[in-house]
Each structure stands twice: as structure tokens, then as C-alpha cells.
Design a protein around this nucleic acid. Structure first.
Lengths: 127, 127
DNA sequence: TTTTAGTACCTTGTGTTACATAGTACTAAA
DNA sequence: TTTAGTACTATGTAACACAAGGTACTAAAA
């Protein structure tokens, strides 16, 4: 019965794509968070919501350590702000260094997209 | 990175970009390797060279485990082939499942690029 | 024959990172 | 006082890329 080795589906590729899709997202998380903060200060829950809008689903356990890391390296600062609907919010803000770093990241992103697309295009001729 | 002291450089962002750049590349490695193999069978050293052409530098220690993983999940197959200039080469080949999976990955990639670019564009208005 | 150089594949250990999970704390309303 | 909603924090785990070192095969030089 249970040759349930790998829960294979008729087209076994589909559910694997989710894994690799997640893989691809990882690398650009930092870029997206900095981009969002360049639009204005925001607190974590707000950032998560904005990422959802662009199909990049991220959970707290991922975001908080990342924000702390970015803060510790001087790319972000933060301030506390009262809220009328719960505990105080930690608003993060892009520093000057962070803004400069963001520009570099955007450049790298553009180069990566170009490189990958070039590789993909070559392949498409032979499928 | 616990910089308790001041390891900071005048333009602290620059060398951090290399790290995050590497981060971003990680997610697309699988996509690129499958794309390359869709152009025809290839052995590891050959794949590394082709990746270099598109600015995606990868080393053996990264590629070999990845190829083995892709093989074990049925996305790749391989055959040995003699060489006149050294040891035999292990030619990897995209399987049918692998080809289908590649198409899905390419789709995911396109969606990701669009999502990230949308986020970046919003930010650029406010810098 | 032995040595050297070049090519190619493989393995192990390490550090980073995203995520799942669980926990703490504050506010407002029932 | 309890409950629900919001928000931030901490801990443990698994995956992954990479550095570094190792094995093995061929051909040509000594």
C-alpha cells in the first residue's frame, strides 16, 4: 500500500515548484524590504502586508530577525510610536547608508535579471 | 554580524552588496542549471563555464550536491562518457519531468521579477 | 617506468538564513 | 476580570552554498 515515498502527483513537478519558488524569493527579500522602507517608515506588520500585496508572503519569524540584522549593520534605524489599538509599534526607517546600499542592490538585481533571462532564452529555443 | 567595535568603512554599503548579491543568486541557480541543460546535455565543468558566461559564478562544492539532488528527485538523468583528455565525464540530461518542472520555474521567475520590479518602482518615486 | 600536469568527480565541515513554534506584553471591550 | 486583537521577541531546526581537501583518470615528459 503505502509506497508513500514522495506523495507523487500525476505531474510530479508542480509541488516541487513551490519549494524552489520559495528559494528564489529568499534572495530578494532584503531588496524588497529596503524598497518598501524607501517609500516611507513602516512597522513590521505593515511591511508584511505590503509584501503580501506583491505576492511575497513572509512570516514574522523571518522578518523580525532580518530587520534586526539590517538595523545592527546600520542600514535601518527605528523609533517607537504609540498605537491606539494595541502595543506600541516599532517604526523602521531607512538610513542614509541604507539608501545608498539599496541603490546598489537594485543595480545588482537588474544585472541578475538580465543574466538569468539570457540563459532562459537560450534554452527556450531547444525545448 | 556583531560589530561591537567600528569595523565600518567610509562607504560601508559597497562590500555588503556582494553578500546580498550572492544571496539573490542562490535562488535562481536551480533555474539556470535546468535552463542550460535544456540546451543540451552537459557535464559539471561545462555547466560551470556556461554559468560564468552569464556572470553567475558557481564552484564545484555547490554544483555537485545540487546536481545529485536534482538527479535523485528525477529531474535529471546522466550517462558516463569517455574523454580523450582526462577521466570520464558525467553528462547530465534533463528528463521529461525536469523539462516540465523547468517551465513552471520559468513562470515563477517571471512572476517574481514582476513583483519585485513593482516594489522597486514604487520606492524610486520617493528617493 | 616513473613523474608531472591537467582534467574531472566527490566528500566533509561550517556559517548563514528562513521558517515554525511558542512566548511576552499592551490595549480595549465584554 | 476575562477575552480578543495587535504587536514584538526568542529559540530550535533544516536547507543551502561554499571552502577545502581528496580521489582518480589520461597523456606527455624525464
Amino acid at each position: 500500500m503505502g509506497n508513500s515515498e514522495n506523495t507523487e502527483k500525476p505531474d510530479g513537478g508542480v509541488e516541487r515548484a513551490a519549494t524552489a519558488q520559495a528559494q528564489m524569493r529568499k534572495g530578494v527579500l532584503e531588496l524588497c524590504i529596503l524598497s518598501i522602507l524607501s517609500q516611507g517608515d513602516a512597522y513590521p506588520t505593515e511591511i508584511i502586508d505590503k509584501l503580501k500585496d506583491t505576492k511575497l508572503v513572509v512570516v514574522e519569524g523571518t522578518l523580525y530577525p532580518l530587520l534586526t540584522r539590517l538595523k545592527n549593520t546600520g542600514l535601518l534605524g527605528y523609533r517607537w510610536e504609540e498605537s491606539t489599538s494595541g502595543p506600541p509599534r516599532k517604526y523602521y526607517k531607512l538610513t542614509e547608508i541604507g539608501a545608498q546600499y539599496l541603490k546598489e542592490l537594485q543595480l545588482s538585481w537588474g544585472e541578475l535579471v538580465e543574466a538569468v533571462n539570457k540563459t532562459i532564452e537560450k534554452g527556450k529555443n531547444n525545448i
